[in-house]
Design a protein around this nucleic acid. Structure first.
Lengths: 249, 249
DNA sequence: AAAAAAATTGCATTATATTGCATATCATGC
DNA sequence: GCATGATATGCAATATAATGCAATTTTTTT
């Protein structure tokens, strides 16, 4: 067996289990622990995993993230996702756009909750498949490589044929006057169609996106029913929305 | 044996097995390990494989399977996938059903090949997204948790609106008299629709599935244009198909 | 067609890499 | 702190890599 193979095997195990023990690897690979140790040392110095006493852990799993900002906004997104889930009632039909906040929402859906869930997002669909009580319906169409959601006429057409209870619209930019905006025209069309297909539109949005603006307009703030941020509803940053006909969470 | 031949042979072995050992190649090719070493050195510097201590590995070696589960008979499926890829021509529009063989096919598509690819399979779509020259179109619909493909009227409807050059129909059971069969009725409907949408139908199928039969019929052997197995076309197990109007690869 | 040049191949030699083991040191939980 | 298991280090055995060289084949030139 090639060293390369062995190292790939170890990496794979780390990816799957988030951690491995030296002794397990030595057993599985039929080599001495010394060899595994050396392999892990190499993989560690090439920053493919993190060596710890007794084994190795995946880089992502370890809660420490060198880029503090990233982990921070992940926490914000988790908080938003939890608030969003409270809006969902058993048996409803929901629609999830793309984005990491909605992915977090999908991940955190209680597994006992019965739902029908439409989505044009590939990663979200994958996530939903692991929820045994969620019936997932994928909005087909041309896949955009960047955003990993389907776009184009076929997808919009499919959206035009449905009407869901709640739509969670991942929001990159929201502005009190200009409303929701995006930089990708195709995605704007998708989001417009999603709004049309929904009785209630919820915008999960981390607070730093408030006040920002992109090239193309999706809709005005008045077309959104609920705005969810990681902040408390009475936070001063949300002041501007208080007078508008929008629920803050 | 020509040097060129030898190098192609090595490359082929690398593509199928993801790795080769110097000593194996020297044995198989009846040349000294020095010669193989030199060949691999050349192939490495022309970036067709990666030279490692003791042998060589394929360039995309670390392309681990994102689902993480071990694929049964991966070697055979890899061989089938490589044969299947030879049928695809630049610029064509293809349709991939689900299944691990087709997943392997998607994984091994040359990244420089321009293609339009339809699929109702979630894992295959995820895989295809990493191919920058492949335009991926997802057949939307209700997602089946077991098979990870979309099923139901909406998906079949979308299929009815397309006509592709080649369809690769993942095959679980093929029988000389009974044709292709499946145990899931919904998937049968999908596969029927896929056949209708295709000018040419290719069935990649590992040989152990030959002769097996399930409850529901998809189509007869006569509806398949090409049958690809991991065996050589003249293998005795394929004897029964020789008299039928089907190409064996 | 013959000669010269270049490429290919295998072998011998030397250098380097890999691996497992023994031993001493270190970390961790109790 | 003490027992246990993990780590580091040096070392020897083995496998693999690199290099130079000579024999052979292929290609090019004359």
């Amino acid at each position: 067996m090639l060293k390369e193979e062995r190292q790939q095997f170890i990496l794979n195990e780390v990816r799957i289990h988030n951690k491995v023990l030296l002794t397990d690897m030595a057993d599985l690979l039929n080599v001495s622990v010394d060899t595994v140790r050396r392999d892990i040392k190499e993989l560690d110095s090439s920053e493919q995993l993190k060596k710890v006493h007794g084994g190795a852990v995946s880089l992502g799993f370890n809660n420490y993230n060198p880029i503090g900002q990233k982990i921070y906004s992940l926490e914000k997104k988790a908080l938003i996702a939890e608030k969003a889930i409270k809006l969902i009632k058993e048996g409803q039909v929901i629609l999830l756009s793309g984005g990491t906040t909605n992915l977090e929402l999908a991940r955190r859906l209680p597994s006992k909750m019965k739902l029908t869930c439409f989505t044009p997002s590939l990663p979200i669909a994958v996530q939903l498949l692991s929820k045994s009580n969620v019936e997932t319906i994928f909005i087909g169409g041309r896949l955009s490589r960047d955003s990993q959601i389907t776009i184009g006429g076929s997808a919009i057409n499919m959206l035009s044929e449905i009407k869901v209870d709640i739509c969670f619209l991942g929001t990159n930019s929201i502005h009190p006057n200009e409303g929701l905006t995006e930089f990708d025209w195709e995605i704007v069309q998708m989001k417009k169609a999603m709004i049309h297909s929904s009785r209630k539109v919820v915008s999960p949005c981390i607070s730093e996106k408030i006040g920002s603006m992109q090239r193309y307009k999706i809709c005005g703030v008045e077309d959104i029913d609920v705005l969810i941020t990681e902040l408390e509803p009475w936070d001063s940053k949300l002041e501007v929305f208080k007078t508008m006909n929008i629920q803050l969470l």
